[in-house]
Computed example of a mutant assay.
Amino acid sequence: MSKAGHRLSLGPIPKPDAVKLTIALSAELKAQLDAYAQVHAGMHQAPVDAATLIPHMLAAFIARDRGFRVACRKATAPEPD
C-alpha cells in the first residue's frame, strides 16, 4: 500500500486514558481493522494494533456526526417559557 497522495482520516494516536469495553466483531471487520492498523502504522512510523485504533475511530466518527451533535444540542437546550 502506497503512502504517496493518500491520507487516512485517523491521525497519530495519543496515549490512552481508557475504560475497558469488550465487543464482538465479524471476522471481515476485524480483518479490515487489522489492515487499517497496518497502513496507519506505516504512515505514522509507529506500530499500532486494531484494538488501539478502535476508540479513536469511534471518537472521530462521533465528532463528525452532525445529526448526533444536533440531537445533543436539542436534548440540552432549555425549555421555552
Rank of each mutant, 00 (worst) to 15 (best):
E79P: 15
S2A: 13
A51R: 02
A4Y: 08
H56F: 11
V39A: 14
L10Y: 08
I23E: 00
A75M: 02
S26K: 02
Q32P: 06
R66E: 15
C72M: 13
L25N: 02
G11A: 07
Y36K: 03
M57D: 01
H44Q: 06
G42W: 01
D17C: 09
A60T: 02
I62D: 04
R64Q: 10
R73Y: 06
P12G: 07
A27V: 12
G42D: 05
V19G: 14
H44L: 08
K20H: 14
M57K: 00
Y36A: 05
R7E: 15
K3C: 09
P55L: 12
A75H: 02
R66H: 12
D81R: 15
K15Y: 12
Q45F: 13
L21T: 14
A27L: 12
S26P: 00
K30I: 04
H40I: 01
A41M: 11
H6G: 11
T22R: 09
T22P: 04
G42L: 07
K74F: 00
G11M: 04
A46M: 04
A71L: 02
L8H: 07
A50Y: 00
V70F: 08
L21G: 10
A63T: 02
C72R: 09
A24N: 13
P78F: 04
A77E: 13
D49F: 04
L21V: 15
K15C: 10
Q32T: 13
M57T: 04
L25K: 01
D17Q: 13
G67R: 02
A59C: 06
E28H: 10
Q45H: 14
D49N: 02
A31C: 09
A41H: 10
E79I: 10
A37Q: 02
R69D: 15
R64T: 07
A50D: 00
R69V: 11
A50N: 00
A24Q: 12
E79W: 09
H56Q: 08
L25H: 01
A37V: 09
